[in-house]
Design a protein around this nucleic acid. Structure first.
Lengths: 155, 155
DNA sequence: CATATTATTGAAATTGAATTTCATTTTCTT
DNA sequence: AAGAAAATGAAATTCAATTTCAATAATATG
């Protein structure tokens, strides 16, 4: 699952850039820059997407046993409230977090066997959604669309 | 919100029919027919859709203070497991139940202001979903689609 | 640069919905 | 009507999410 431990300049650069971005964003909003938030933000960006607070806490506490669950949890909440992360809840009822990217809203394919979460976006779908909502005089603010089933590997 | 208290022969008939249907279904599956299950099933069918176990319990306990929350909860679970009801979880994280109708799967429009839940189904949407899933080699078992926003009355 | 102010931290406590336990009661079978 | 099996309901438990609070750390200010 994990890549080899060699250098990954492009990826690392991206992460440190994003990390800096987060730091600035938070600063700007009047929050304090702390060692913990730095580590948590970094690890969050590095982690696969769709991590739970618990997941992230476990990852982090391996290297940093002085960072508590509460702080990880609160930092994820903080990032979410600040518009830098998104909370999502799938069928297992756990709250998962995902860094906000510049990309537009996306939806999810969730494998019932291996649990893999694949993202997709589809313009036609967006248009159709708007059209349907219009028919009901409904103004969509956000939506949730998830497909549960079996991925290519598992079916 | 509530209709006048007059006779509603058509609706009542439907409910007692469905109630009988449920009773038979359960019987057939080897469950026992009890006074409580009768009352709960009847009230469940009568209740607006998308009730929580708590909602239903409150309704029922007004008239039947000997029926406990646990039994309401277990009956809803039982109906769900038996394919006579569906569980759904929306953004508020509460589990809601809905009687199964013969109609096909439907999706939901949820008003962020008044909380109204409107159902819809759309064939084009279903087809598009299949098409998208196919592109990923994904086999859809079930899906979830919810629009959050403002209904005609609230916007 | 010392210190006051204010936010953050982390352990532990709390919450609240969901679920389970268990002694008692009810239903169904024979 | 008696026994076996299932259902009931109050209370207990679970578990993720959230809050509390005393201690600590970061920033602002003199």
């Amino acid at each position: 699952m994990k890549k080899t431990a060699g250098r990954e300049p492009a990826v690392s650069k991206k992460i440190s850039e994003k990390k800096e971005q987060i730091r600035l964003h938070l600063k700007q909003k009047g929050f304090k820059a702390t060692r913990q938030r730095d580590i948590i933000a970094g690890e969050f960006l590095r982690s696969g997407e769709h991590v739970t607070a618990e997941d992230l806490y476990k990852n982090i506490s391996r290297k940093h046993d002085d960072i508590g669950f509460t702080t990880v949890y609160r930092t994820l909440k903080l990032l979410s409230r600040s518009g830098l992360a998104t909370e999502r809840v799938f069928a297992d009822q756990l709250t998962r977090y995902e860094p906000i990217s510049s990309e537009s809203h996306h939806d999810h394919l969730i494998c019932l066997k291996c649990g893999a979460i694949t993202e997709f976006e589809n313009l036609k779908m967006e248009r159709l959604q708007e059209k349907i909502a219009d028919e009901f005089g409904f103004h969509i603010v956000t939506h949730k669309m998830e497909f549960y089933g079996y991925c290519r590997a598992c079916r």
